[in-house]
Write a protein that binds this DNA or RNA. Structure first.
Lengths: 361, 361
DNA sequence: GCATTTTATGTTAGCGTTAACATTAGAGGG
DNA sequence: CCCTCTAATGTTAACGCTAACATAAAATGC
């Protein structure tokens, strides 16, 4: 037998009629959507060698590798990860669910996750609209898609959500709040402690009647935790709790502005207000400026979720800074470690927070 | 032959060792990750009937359907879309690439796409960091994942990006700018016309020396178009063009603030400035307030990409409003139509924009 | 120099689903 | 009462890739 390689076999018949959307262009341009065997034929190796060239190049002969890469170029081959995932029983897609895609808060965490995952993984994103059943639906969709890991911003879930993730046995990180008992893992900060510390800071500054404004509490564990932190700090410092100066507000600048107006109308004696969540504090401050109320002399305003805007308004806002980007990075790297089989050091990672005192208090 | 069904066959041997990550829990809890055949055995039908029950319930006997749904419940079966996509040669994943995940501008469009896609499709998101090669890499990754459609915010691409999408022959919508010659389709507004109109509006208001600030132009077709719109309006109104009052600025509130300071230092005679992109205009306004420059008497300020904040600052900012959410919705529905084989009405859809005059000009 | 290991590649079978075709039982028609 | 037609379900063979095992040739050891 001579050393002449196998003759080019050409593409085998494809009995199934749906095989290719046979556009005229396909016929003209030649093959569209080359498969691994096409590359293999061109490079005169078996499909398996092509697979190895892509996944474990170190164990393939450099000469062969070169031929294969040439063939990949020539055919415009793009590996089919659907087939790859099915065969190897693992995917390279991570799923991420946030309460709202609109809110730039979450965007920070998303960015951290995306940056840390890098090129090797893709990111599937869904939006629960702050509704637990929609989170459940998104989790089901992700698990159907066989994601290799899940990041959830919310930490309150339906029982079925927990059950599905646990029985899928894939890594999962919750990022919205430092929960004591995660589905699997958590990377976050304590919303309770953050609100507690900010309230204590205001008390320390000498404010006597401190109002509290947050987003609606239902299905929102973060807002709930923050309110309880505020209440805890008042109790610890033996301050009276006045339910009339604890508000749930609509989101947005307008929500914060309206909350401040309502508070000032009802209880003119309050001397400080802590607005937590979204951009409420900024809305309140802009409204105070518009009304001519002096901040902090007439009313002190403190916010949370520090951002460039809070730093740039006048007076700049006292706020709590949360390491949202880091949380995303940490969440992703916890996921990756688990996927790579590294024994998990900690299930719950506290990234902390920082009170930033500025001129508004 | 009696009517007794086949005996339960039980799960066949799985010779391949990687088949299941055999955790102790799996043994205890019973089967983990039921497959379609498991459901089929339990419901005493073939796998194909289960497949039909999920995909074309109308052609399955109601009684059978009930049994199958019972079996799905009992087994906790979640369809494996990887296998389904491979077999059916189509996926239900749409890919979306934005220049930055952090920027809440893009978040609006993302939300529009996500809302319109609904539950039937999943959304894969990547971030190009304003770098064309990263966009190309993301497109390659998406095509490997065999997405059924792509939305690109950017409208400038590497040749390979265009080629890959075109030869993959999947629908694609570009959303960042109303491009005359899209890869496939486009849904957007004209950045050129928006800047032209705003500049003309300022001229109409009687401003004589109008400065222009945008984000850096390289690889950013939007900024480029806007600058050319500004220049076009000046020319059309026979105004002199002064390159000294055309700036490229860093992003963020700080970028806008610094741009305003630089302009006022260099050319005190300017009477208006149009800052387009990101939050530049808001940064400039806040800086003017801080410096005690009266807006619009000392300097008029106009922005773009109207949002709640521009409406809430004092004085509220004149701005251009872009229908970003609608763009996302339209882009997604164009994609869906094409996926469903509806003959495409238009390849390029102009969603327009709106000049919002307020007290800052 | 021959057994043994290493290196490079090939072969086979299956991942879990679905398209296409096959089959079966019962309904309708004359 | 036989024939055709429809409705419901089953059977088979892919989809494009990769794990596991098989093989062949080259390198190594004693």
């Amino acid at each position: 037998m001579s050393t002449i390689g196998n003759s080019q076999k050409g593409r085998k018949r494809r009995p199934r009629s749906h095989a290719r959307p046979s556009a005229a262009a396909a016929a003209l341009q030649g093959l569209r959507g080359a498969r691994m065997t096409d590359v293999a034929n061109l490079a005169k190796v078996s499909a398996m060698t092509v697979s190895r060239a892509l996944r474990h190049p170190a164990i393939v002969d450099p000469e062969t590798l070169k031929r294969i890469h040439g063939a990949i170029e020539a055919t415009g081959y793009l590996p089919n990860r659907i087939a790859g995932s099915l065969a190897s029983q693992r995917s390279n897609i991570v799923g991420l669910i946030v309460p709202s895609l609109r809110n730039s808060l979450f965007a920070e965490t998303v960015k951290g996750v995306a940056d840390t995952l890098g090129d090797a993984y893709d990111l599937l994103i869904a939006d629960s609209g702050y509704v637990l059943d929609r989170e459940e639906a998104a989790v089901a969709a992700f698990l159907s898609q066989r994601v290799c890991g899940i990041v959830l911003h919310n930490t309150k879930h339906t029982p079925r959500t927990r059950r599905m993730i646990q029985s899928a046995a894939i890594p999962c990180v919750e990022t919205g709040n430092l929960v004591r008992c995660p589905i699997d893992m958590a990377a976050s900060f304590s919303n309770h402690k953050a609100a507690y510390d900010m309230t204590a800071y205001l008390i320390g500054k000498g404010y006597k009647r401190i109002a509290f404004v947050s987003l609606p509490l239902d299905d929102n564990d973060r807002a709930r935790e923050r309110q309880s932190g505020y209440l805890g700090a008042l109790k610890a410092h033996r301050r009276a709790i006045d339910r009339n100066i604890i508000l749930e507000s609509a989101p947005g600048l307008r929500g914060g502005a309206e909350a401040l107006i309502e508070l000032m109308k009802k209880r003119p004696r309050i001397d400080a207000v802590f607005l937590t969540g979204d951009v409420l504090a900024t809305g309140a401050l802009l409204e105070a400026n518009r009304k001519g109320w002096r901040v902090p002399d007439d009313i002190a305003i403190a916010g949370s979720d520090d951002n460039e805007l809070q730093e740039y308004v006048s007076p700049p806002l006292t706020s709590v800074r949360f390491p949202r980007y880091d949380i995303g990075c940490t969440a992703a790297s916890m996921l990756l470690k688990r996927i790579d089989g590294v024994p998990s050091a900690e299930r719950v990672v506290d990234l902390g927070f920082q009170i930033i005192p500025r001129a508004s208090t």
